[in-house]
Computed example of a mutant assay.
Amino acid sequence: MSAAAGNARPAPRHWLVEGPAVQARVIGALIMREIQTRFGRHNLGFLWLFLEPMVLGSVLGAMHAAHGQALPGNPDPFLFSISGYVPFFMFRSVVNRAGSALHSNLTLLFHRQVTPVDVLIARNLLEAAAVFAVILIILGLAAWSAEVWPANIAQIFAGLVLMFLLCHGISMMLAAGVARWEGLERIIHPVTYLMMPLSGAFFALSWLPAETRDLLLWVPLVSIHEMIREAIFGAIFVSYYDIPYVILFILVVNLLGLAALRGARRKLEIF
Rank of each mutant, 00 (worst) to 15 (best):
123 R>M: 03
35 I>F: 10
120 L>R: 04
101 A>G: 04
52 E>N: 07
112 R>Q: 12
106 L>A: 15
87 P>K: 00
49 L>R: 12
35 I>M: 07
86 V>G: 02
67 H>L: 13
69 Q>W: 01
120 L>V: 15
132 F>V: 15
114 V>A: 01
123 R>V: 05
124 N>E: 08
40 G>W: 05
97 R>C: 03
49 L>P: 14
49 L>N: 15
122 A>I: 02
131 V>R: 02
119 V>M: 09
116 P>F: 00
37 T>V: 14
71 L>A: 07
106 L>C: 13
132 F>M: 11
119 V>P: 00
137 I>Y: 01
46 F>P: 05
119 V>R: 08
119 V>S: 06
51 L>C: 11
138 I>K: 03
103 H>E: 12
89 F>E: 02
65 A>I: 03
89 F>M: 03
98 A>D: 08
121 I>H: 14
116 P>N: 01
103 H>Y: 15
93 S>C: 09
38 R>D: 11
124 N>K: 06
90 M>A: 10
90 M>N: 02
64 H>E: 11
92 R>K: 05
115 T>V: 02
131 V>H: 07
142 A>N: 07
101 A>Q: 01
137 I>D: 04
118 D>C: 13
63 M>N: 09
130 A>D: 00
42 H>W: 13
108 L>G: 06
67 H>E: 11
82 I>R: 04
71 L>Q: 14
85 Y>F: 15
132 F>W: 10
75 P>R: 10
65 A>H: 08
62 A>P: 11
101 A>T: 13
74 N>P: 09
84 G>N: 02
80 F>C: 12
66 A>V: 10
120 L>F: 03
96 N>K: 00
132 F>I: 13
87 P>F: 08
70 A>V: 15
135 I>F: 02
85 Y>S: 04
77 P>L: 13
75 P>D: 13
35 I>N: 11
76 D>A: 06
73 G>F: 01
142 A>R: 02
74 N>F: 10
106 L>R: 15
82 I>E: 01
131 V>M: 09
50 F>N: 12
107 T>I: 03
48 W>M: 12
145 S>L: 15
137 I>R: 00
53 P>Q: 09
94 V>P: 00
58 S>L: 04
145 S>Q: 15
79 L>S: 08
94 V>I: 05
53 P>N: 03
57 G>W: 05
78 F>H: 03
124 N>A: 15
138 I>D: 06
53 P>R: 09
86 V>Y: 07
88 F>H: 05
51 L>R: 12
70 A>C: 05
119 V>N: 06
125 L>M: 06
148 V>G: 00
82 I>W: 02
91 F>A: 07
89 F>V: 03
114 V>H: 04
124 N>T: 11
50 F>K: 03
130 A>Q: 06
144 W>D: 06
145 S>H: 14
50 F>D: 03
127 E>N: 08
40 G>V: 00
55 V>K: 08
50 F>A: 14
35 I>L: 09
147 E>H: 14
